[in-house]
Structure formats: C-alpha cells, structure tokens
Design a protein around this nucleic acid. Structure first.
Length: 153
DNA sequence: GCCAACGTTGGC
DNA sequence: GCCAACGTTGGC
C-alpha cells in the first residue's frame, strides 16, 4: 500500500466535485506530464491512499483524502479528436496517457496549506516541498500521518 | 502574468 | 547523441 499526493485546480475539479460523483468515485485524468504519467502508470495501485491537493488557487493546500479504486488504464481523451487532450501520437495499442479512478474518503476539518507544510520540519522532505510542478507524487507513511494529524483533528 | 524546474522533442 | 527549444506545471 502506497501513499500519494494528487494535485488539482479546484476551479477545474475540487474535492467537493469528487464527493458529488456517483458513489463518490471519479476519474483522475488529463495528466499530460511525463513524470506524473509514469507514477500513475507504473506505481499507483488499487487500495493506495491519496492526499487531495488544491493547486493554482488562493491558498494551495491539502484538503482531504481519497483511495485508488482502479489502477491505470488509458485516458480516453487522448483518442478523442474533439478533446483538447487529443494526442495524434497515441493509439489504442500504444496509449501514451493514463488515468485512474479514485473514491472520496474524507475532507479535512482544516485544510493544510502549502505554506504551513513548508514551515514544518517534519515535512521538509516532502516532494511537494522539494520539487514543485509535479501533479502526481509519492508521500511517505510518516508524512501521511503527520499531515493527517494537522488536518483531520 | 512571470518564470523556474523538469522531461521530451528534434535539428544537426 | 548533443543540446537548445518547447510544453507542462504551479507558486508567487
């Protein structure tokens, strides 16, 4: 069982949008960054736990949790000529982009802002702190526990 | 809206 | 096979 952090712009898809899905299950798609793609395709597995992070907004923060209910499968948008995520170099037998399904688990009583994470010595090694601009990233079990305690009190 | 970090692309 | 250009991401 692994821990992850998934970033999403709340204007596009927020944790409340996930909670509003049928069965609270939503598709995590539109990933078009190779590092993120590789994690998604090769490492993210069913049953893994996910921090839901709101990016590119007023207060970037970890806002809740989800679980992976379906491991990587080809992102349908890459095959759809009408989609802005259409990719001419992708084919059914050689898909380039992948997505997973996740289920809403919790929304924090209190979001844990990026600024606070950066100040916390216990979280100094988080990929979120060390490397920006990565929308799918691993989280350690210790980091998971620490952030949960901060947000879910 | 600027620009920095990262991986891929493509000209040579 | 080098490396500059480019696309994506995302904090500020």
């Amino acid at each position: 069982m692994n821990y992850w952090l998934f970033k999403s712009e709340p204007d596009e898809y927020s944790i409340d949008d996930l909670a509003a899905e049928p069965g609270r299950v939503g598709r995590w798609d539109d990933i078009r960054n190779y590092q993120a793609r590789n994690f998604l395709r090769d490492r993210v597995a069913g049953g893994d736990c996910v921090f839901f992070y709101h990016s590119s907004c007023k207060v970037p923060a970890i806002v809740g949790t989800a679980e992976v209910v379906r491991a990587a499968y080809p992102d349908p948008a890459q095959f759809d000529p009408e989609s802005k995520y259409f990719d001419t170099k992708a084919s059914a037998d050689r898909p380039r982009w992948f997505c997973v399904d996740i289920r809403w688990l919790s929304k924090f009583a209190r979001p844990v802002p990026l600024a606070e994470i950066k100040r916390n010595p216990a979280l100094a090694e988080m990929v979120l702190v060390k490397q920006g601009r990565l929308s799918i990233q691993p989280v350690t079990a210790q980091e998971w526990k620490t952030v949960l305690a901060l947000g879910d009190m």
